[in-house]
Design a protein around this nucleic acid. Structure first.
Length: 518
DNA sequence: ATCGACGTTGTTTCC
DNA sequence: GGGAAACAACGTCGA
């Protein structure tokens, strides 16, 4: 039988249940397996949606996957096109009897997979999708919780305690079935080898912008995980809020890029972590522990799966409706958004983390908080949707569920409501980086600025600016406003928005019905 | 209905 | 320098 395994995420050989399903079906003399990845020009190959760093990381992960597949007697066919047409075409012309892929739960991916299944319903192909990207089955969790997701970690922990232990990781296949010499693919571009960034120059990707330095692929993922887990004290005492956002090397595990594309299995990480916990007298606990970090990931996936329009404000039932500035309609807001994205807003801490994002494709969690709070409720009053798009474009660990979850949180649109707790672009990093080493690294213009002015260079006297070869307003921008003034104004606007939402809720909600009855 | 405790991770001031 | 309290005060949940 001809079997096709479609890799989407789950870019690994270890703990890959749907790949194992494909392998199991490959019995008999004529059985063969086509492993395929489809690059979608609308998403993966769109330079407006994906930075060079992100595309490079994806291609490099695919190259590592292909290497590993070849070691086991298989290979990866990389195609280009819309999966909604590519996959049905490949199934039909290659007369595949079995199609496997790892299930995705984001509504847009669910809709795409539904269309593909529909397109294949008259074919004699069996389609099997298996969960492999999360610890728990979201359908199971929803059922246990009366059809609704939990919206805070305490509730989620209670829910998880009823769900039973996550599955143990599956074995890695010793060998893989043979593959056809070439695959039939009318109208579909198939690359001979996994393409590189240079192959997409014509689409607008510039190799010069590939600046991130990271080893991709599942071997690196496992190596990174094992190196971290070996540091027993660090693992046992891990508390996320205590980790340092201004550390020049990641103070956290930095496993997220591997986790998001599935070159590392979250179940492997979970159970390896449990082994470390098992050998210890005591360890930190959720929500701040390493286990807690996995639970946050789980909860955001559950919410993303079960909340309509979770990627936007309008039509999203858990999202507070706030009159943000829309860069698509407001020229000044667009200008500010661009300055924010490009590290030219004039507040060194914000510019430093945004520059880290665009050059490394990664930021510490708290750095993301600072940047997100600044864009939305703290300073610029710009819609979180615009910020989420920027993060999604640049972050190697981009994950639709987690990204939207975090932007809801930081903008006080859902989950977190204490809008008077606000990050200061001047004060926040001083706690961990009083001399501004992080700023100096990521905003080189300010490298020679004295400590006294590193977070507020506009206060430096002209002579100081000249001495350190950084004239504010010329070599490095002036901030567009006084933070404390903007903050005060925004706090007032938040208060208004909260009141308006409360009113809207009681108008259409159960309270109104009650008063009608009574 | 009302109140108090709680919610992963704020800032400033004062000792 | 570290730690505690003041600052101003959100929604949600359960007693």
């Amino acid at each position: 039988m001809q079997v096709i395994h479609w890799f989407r995420h789950g870019l690994r050989l270890h703990d890959n249940p749907s790949l194992l399903n494909a392998v199991k079906k490959c019995t008999g003399e004529d059985a063969s397996l086509i492993n395929v990845y489809v690059l979608d020009p609308k998403f993966d190959l769109n330079p407006n949606k994906l930075s060079e760093n992100r595309l490079w990381f994806l291609l490099e992960t695919l190259r590592c996957l292909d290497d590993k597949l070849r070691d086991k007697g298989s290979k990866l066919f990389v195609c280009m096109g819309n999966p909604e047409t590519v996959i049905p075409t490949l199934v039909k012309v290659n007369k595949a009897g079995f199609l496997t892929y790892e299930r995705q739960t984001e509504p847009h991916n669910v809709a795409r997979d539904r269309k593909i299944k529909d397109a294949l319903q008259n074919e004699s192909v069996e389609v099997e999708a298996v969960l492999g990207h999360t610890l728990f089955n979201p359908d199971h969790l929803l059922k246990l919780n009366g059809g609704k997701p939990t919206l805070n970690m305490t509730g989620f922990q209670t829910l998880v305690s009823k769900a039973g232990a996550p599955k143990k990781p599956k074995e890695t296949p010793d060998s893989l079935p043979p593959f056809p010499k070439s695959i039939q693919s009318p109208g579909v571009k198939v690359f001979d080898d996994v393409p590189s960034l240079a192959d997409f120059k014509d689409l607008g990707f510039d190799e010069k912008n590939k600046t991130c330095v990271i080893n991709a692929g599942e071997d690196s993922a496992i190596k990174t995980m094992e190196a971290f887990l070996k540091q027993t004290n660090r693992v046992l005492s891990f508390e996320k809020p205590q980790t340092n956002p201004t550390s020049l090397e990641p103070d956290t595990t930095a496993l997220s890029p591997f986790m998001s594309n599935g070159s590392l299995s979250c179940r492997l990480f979970y159970w390896n972590l449990m082994d470390v916990y098992a050998g210890a007298k005591k360890h930190s606990t959720p929500p701040v522990s390493l286990e807690g970090q996995l639970l946050w990931r789980e909860m955001s996936h559950l919410i993303g799966y079960s909340t309509p329009n979770f990627g936007q404000m309008v039509g999203n039932p858990i999202c507070r409706q706030i009159p943000w500035k829309e860069p698509t309609e407001d020229k000044e807001a667009k200008k500010m958004l661009d300055r924010w994205e490009n590290g030219k807003i004039g507040f060194p801490a914000v510019d430093a983390v945004m520059n880290q994002l665009t050059t490394q494709g990664w930021m510490h969690h708290l750095a993301r908080h600072l940047a997100a709070c600044f864009l939305t409720r703290g300073d610029l009053w710009i819609t979180w949707e615009a910020g989420a798009a920027v993060f999604e474009k640049h972050l190697l660990d981009a994950d639709w569920n987690i990204n939207n979850f975090s932007w809801h949180w930081l903008s006080c649109s859902a989950f977190f409501h204490q809008f008077f707790r606000c990050y200061s672009p001047i004060a926040f990093f001083k706690k961990t980086d009083p001399h501004g080493a992080f700023i100096r690294k990521h905003v080189p213009e300010l490298a020679k600025m004295p400590d006294k002015f590193i977070y507020e260079p506009w206060l430096a006297p002209r002579a100081t600016q000249e001495a350190c070869k950084c004239i504010i307003g010329k070599d490095y921008p002036n901030p567009p406003f006084d933070h404390s003034v903007a903050l005060k104004e925004n706090l007032g606007k938040m208060k208004e928005a909260f009141a308006a939402n409360k009113e809207a809720k009681s108008d259409g909600g159960p309270k109104a019905k009650k008063s009608k009855k009574g």
